[in-house]
Simulated assay, not measured.
Amino acid sequence: MQAKAYFAQYLIHQAWQQTLLDNQPHKPWSWADTYPVAKLTLMKKGQYKQKDGRSLYVLSGTSGRNLAFGPTRVKGGGLDFPQGNRVIAGHNDTHFSVLNGIESGRIIKFEDANNRVRFYQVSSTHIVHETDTYVLESNLTDQLTLITCYPFNSLTPRSEFRLVVSALPLSV
């Protein structure tokens, strides 16, 4: 499963490059029911420019199938607007494993399909029960919300807790 998820990133990268060229959604493979809608890059602490940063392509449609290939936009997650609560979910044992130990102050570069780039700074992290859905609410506040299962490296396959990473925009 993990190897498939990481290899898919190559095909998703190609689809993303096409999207940036013509502003149209492109499926990474012919039978895909998803396409890349954004790109996240976790920057090293205190840096805004990083050539070898860990980039993740965000896919449309939050389903178990799509989550196997990368983080996904949560429906109503604000990616279609210049501002709003951009909510992105990912598995903690693959793509969002990079959130393990993330601290306030970390910079996240966000690129949308219209080639707009925003920098966000992690303002808080907290653990919530899966029924606490307030973090999914749409609002007009420009923020980035990343969600993954918690705890990391758990021996049980399904957790009822989520790590929520909140990040606010930076003026660069």
Rank of each mutant, 00 (worst) to 15 (best):
T19A: 13
I107F: 15
Q14P: 01
N115P: 03
Q50A: 09
A113H: 00
R106S: 15
N66G: 08
E130N: 11
A15R: 07
D93W: 15
L79A: 08
N66S: 02
E137R: 12
G84L: 03
S104W: 10
S123Y: 06
F69Q: 00
L79C: 02
F81S: 14
K109D: 07
M1S: 12
D112T: 01
T131H: 11
G90I: 02
T156V: 12
T62P: 05
Y6N: 03
S30V: 04
L79Y: 09
Q121D: 03
M43A: 13
Y57W: 14
L168C: 10
V87F: 02
R73W: 07
I12P: 04
A5D: 01
R158C: 08
H13F: 09
T41G: 04
N115S: 14
V165P: 08
R54V: 10
A8L: 07
R116A: 07
K44Q: 11
Y134D: 15
S97W: 04
V135Q: 07
G46R: 05
N92C: 12
H129A: 11
S104I: 12
L42V: 11
P82Y: 09
Q121A: 14
L67V: 02
S30W: 00
Q50K: 13
C149Q: 02
L21V: 04
V37P: 01
L99A: 13
N115K: 05
A32F: 09
P71T: 02
Q9F: 09
E160A: 06
N23T: 03
R116F: 03
A167H: 11
V164E: 00
A3T: 15
Q17W: 04
V165D: 15
H126V: 02
W29N: 07
S55L: 06
L144A: 12
N114S: 11
L146P: 01
T131W: 03
L42K: 01
L140C: 12
L168K: 13
D52F: 15
M43R: 10
T156R: 12
V165R: 04
Y10H: 06
V87R: 00
S30L: 08
I102Q: 15
P25I: 05
H91P: 11
D33G: 05
P36D: 06
D93F: 13
S30M: 10
L56K: 07
H91K: 14
T41I: 04
R118L: 13
S159L: 02
Q17P: 00
H129T: 11
V98M: 13
Q9P: 07
R86F: 04
Q17Y: 01
L11D: 09
T145A: 08
T19H: 10
G77M: 00
T148E: 12
S63P: 05
Y150N: 06
S171E: 15
P151G: 00
E137Q: 14
P151Y: 08
I108K: 04
N139H: 09
T72H: 00
H95D: 13
G84F: 01
A89G: 08
T145W: 01
I88R: 07
T41K: 05
T125G: 09
F7T: 08
V172M: 14
R73Q: 12
K109L: 13
